[in-house]
Amino acid sequence: MNLIKIFRSYDYQKLAKLNEVVHNLHVKLYPRYFTPYNLLEMEVEFEKLMKHEQYTFLILSYENENKGFIFFEILNKPSTPFKKPYKSLYVHQLSINESEQRKGYGQALMEKTQQIAHSEQVDCIELDYWIKNESARQFYRKNNFMLEREFVRKNI
């Protein structure tokens, strides 16, 4: 009997709390760009995000305890003089509670996301992660994501 459940959620309070791990990692790695985690402010922000019908939030629970979430949207990229059209599933956030990492929960969320991508007939799954987030790099490489583009910054 599989005790893992993955379900769509509109509970902005649960999502704001589950976001704490990944947000704190971003703050630690990039304090210049990220503000300290504030639960109440995150709840307000996630409540706003819930109003956008194109966003999907999935929570993974095991034995009725929430372990993590994924936040994505499906994008229809139109044809331009520069690029051909395509449809993608863009992952905005993936976060697993720190004590629950490396137990297959992130993998389960990615597999569910791939199933949705297939059913929506998207061409690809896209995402980005911060370069200092080595665990994300390893996780996505393990899941056969290929580096196709690099984003660089020069601070002034």
Rank of each mutant, 00 (worst) to 15 (best):
K103M: 09
F145Y: 13
H23M: 06
R8T: 14
R102I: 02
V44D: 13
E45I: 00
S9L: 03
F46W: 13
Y62W: 08
L29K: 05
K132A: 09
K87N: 04
H52A: 02
L75T: 05
F71L: 11
V91I: 15
R137Y: 11
Y62S: 10
S88G: 02
P78F: 00
Q107G: 08
K5E: 15
F34L: 05
L58S: 12
I156S: 10
K132I: 02
I116V: 10
F69C: 06
Q93H: 12
M42S: 12
F139A: 12
L39M: 01
Q13I: 06
I74Q: 08
K51H: 07
A108M: 04
I6S: 11
P85T: 03
S88A: 12
W130I: 14
L75I: 14
E150I: 11
E111G: 00
I4P: 02
M42I: 00
T113Q: 08
L89M: 05
S88Y: 00
R137P: 01
S135T: 07
N97D: 11
P36L: 04
R102P: 02
H52Q: 13
K67V: 03
L25A: 10
P36M: 07
A117G: 05
F82H: 03
N76K: 15
G68V: 02
E126H: 03
K112M: 09
S135K: 09
R149S: 03
L109G: 10
I125F: 05
Y10S: 14
I74F: 03
H26R: 08
Y62I: 01
K142H: 14
Y30Q: 08
Y86F: 15
I4G: 04
R141W: 11
N133F: 06
G104F: 06
V21D: 15
E43H: 04
E148R: 12
N144M: 12
E20L: 07
T80L: 07
V91T: 10
M146C: 06
H52M: 05
F7S: 15
N38Y: 00
I6C: 14
T56S: 13
P31E: 01
F72T: 07
L75H: 06
L15M: 15
H52T: 09
Y105H: 07
K83M: 05
F34H: 10
L58C: 07
D128L: 00
Q54C: 06
I116A: 01
Y33E: 14
H52C: 06
K142R: 11
D11S: 05
I6T: 07
K48I: 02
V91N: 12
F72W: 04
I6A: 13
A136F: 03
Q54H: 08
F82A: 13
Y90M: 03
N24C: 15
N76T: 13
A117T: 01
K132R: 08
N19K: 09
N76I: 10
L94Q: 04
Y12C: 12
K17N: 12
L127P: 03
G68I: 01
A16S: 06
R141Y: 13
L127H: 05
Q121V: 00
P85H: 10
C124Q: 15
Q121H: 10
D11N: 15
K84N: 13
R32L: 11
N66Q: 11
V27W: 00
S9T: 13
M50R: 14
E126I: 03
M1Y: 03
K77C: 08
F71R: 07
A108T: 02
A117Y: 02
Y12D: 10
S99D: 08
Q54M: 05
Q121R: 14
S119I: 00
K77V: 14
M1S: 09
K14A: 11
T35G: 00
L94P: 01
P85G: 11
K5I: 01
